[in-house]
Design a protein around this nucleic acid. Structure first.
Lengths: 223, 223
DNA sequence: ACCTGAACACCGTTCAAGT
DNA sequence: ACCTGAACACCGTTCAAGT
């Protein structure tokens, strides 16, 4: 039957900072960065846009909180049995996959340097670098290079994904690019043409890991 | 004396795509990403916002064109006398410094994967990788790792810079962060505390290069 | 203490009208 | 062909007024 009261049904649960942030993450994941507006968020939370401002200072803080929320759930758990190399690879893949699932995270994480989520990643990498018996004077550089690579490249990859149409077939797309590379000017793009074939069986995740391994080799080869 | 005509003085030179783009780059450099609006751009070009749309499809295309313009001027010139390692380092530093001067470039470059500006960087790196006598099957991965590192980490660095207040003293800032690191929980942040001291004499540019060298070592150590 | 929603000062973009 | 600028449909944010 029809509702018994005149007033439209409104929110039952109280509006909390937590609920706002998780709704923001959902909006970012489903409708993207341009879809996260205070009006859309308010509608989803069955309230007015002004109410959100009582719990969150503004859009910048909202995005920072959403980013922290995602990173925090990513960085939990640490396999202490693994070799340092394996542990670093696992951590790197964790970040990579998190950026894959939430392509907006990279953008905003970069705007919070030295903040707690990045610091936790840094600490974890650093411990593994120590376990690799890297001399103390070289530890900072080694850990920095790894973290910068991880955040930077995973962020690049996420940005690439965002530009692709959601429906595009991966293989088809790579084939098209590879073909385009083959048709480049042989003088200007000699190298690119040579490796065009390798692009067809290209795997972003594997390529990402291969880069990690190159840095790890570089770190250990120094000793 | 006063002007002889009634109509206010307007633009003399014709409005061209080129003038629009270079004005956009100027606005981005001086007032930042939020300062680039069609209204501000129109005022600077002494016209109305609608006029810009006759030459440029929209804001997305405008940003892409501005990005390409900056990258194109960065990538010119190539020292053929240098060793492969030196050439790659020089190229990397060129990108790093360009991102430093135009901190917005990284953001938008990442949104144009496989497009001409990035392809030119890739080609240059690839040629040096070949010069390093990397086996053909490993060339794609080596060049990708280097390019991803360069774009990713330089982009991270630029994003970091953007978050800093323009007036902040570099040394003071690093000192403050280092001190904060020293006060972290010893259990949770054992490694970070250990390297806090090294942060004081930290140099982003040098650290960036050190990462390049680690990858280069990794690439050549494989052979 | 917490919420509401109209109102303000902006945006990007369009388009009829001008030259 | 190219430009003008008012108008449209949005934003983030504020704030007087409510409970």
């Amino acid at each position: 039957m029809a509702s018994r009261t005149r007033r439209p049904e409104r929110r039952q649960e109280p509006l909390t900072r937590e609920r706002i942030i998780s709704a923001a993450v959902e909006l970012l994941d489903t409708v993207g960065e341009s879809g996260l507006t205070f009006r859309a968020l308010a509608e989803r939370l069955a309230t007015g846009p002004g109410a959100i401002y009582w719990h969150v200072a503004g859009k910048t803080e909202l995005l920072a909180a959403a980013t922290d929320a995602v990173v925090t759930t990513t960085i939990t758990g640490d396999d202490t049995d693994a070799t340092p190399q394996e542990a670093i690879r696992a951590l790197a893949l964790g970040v990579f996959d998190a950026f894959d699932a939430h392509p907006w995270v990279g953008t905003y994480l970069a705007r919070r340097p030295g903040q707690s989520p990045m610091l936790r990643v840094f600490e974890r990498i650093g411990r593994r670098v120590q376990a690799l018996r890297v001399p103390e004077a070289a530890q900072f550089t080694a850990a920095s290079a790894l973290m910068n690579y991880i955040l930077g490249v995973a962020g690049q990859n996420a940005a690439n994904l965002r530009t692709l149409q959601p429906g595009t077939d991966r293989t088809e797309f790579l084939d098209a690019v590879a073909t385009a590379w083959t048709e480049l000017d042989p003088d200007q793009y000699a190298f690119t043409r040579t490796v065009a074939g390798q692009l067809r069986k290209h795997d972003d995740r594997a390529e990402f890991l291969a880069g990690i391994d190159l840095i790890l080799t570089g770190i250990t080869a120094r000793q």
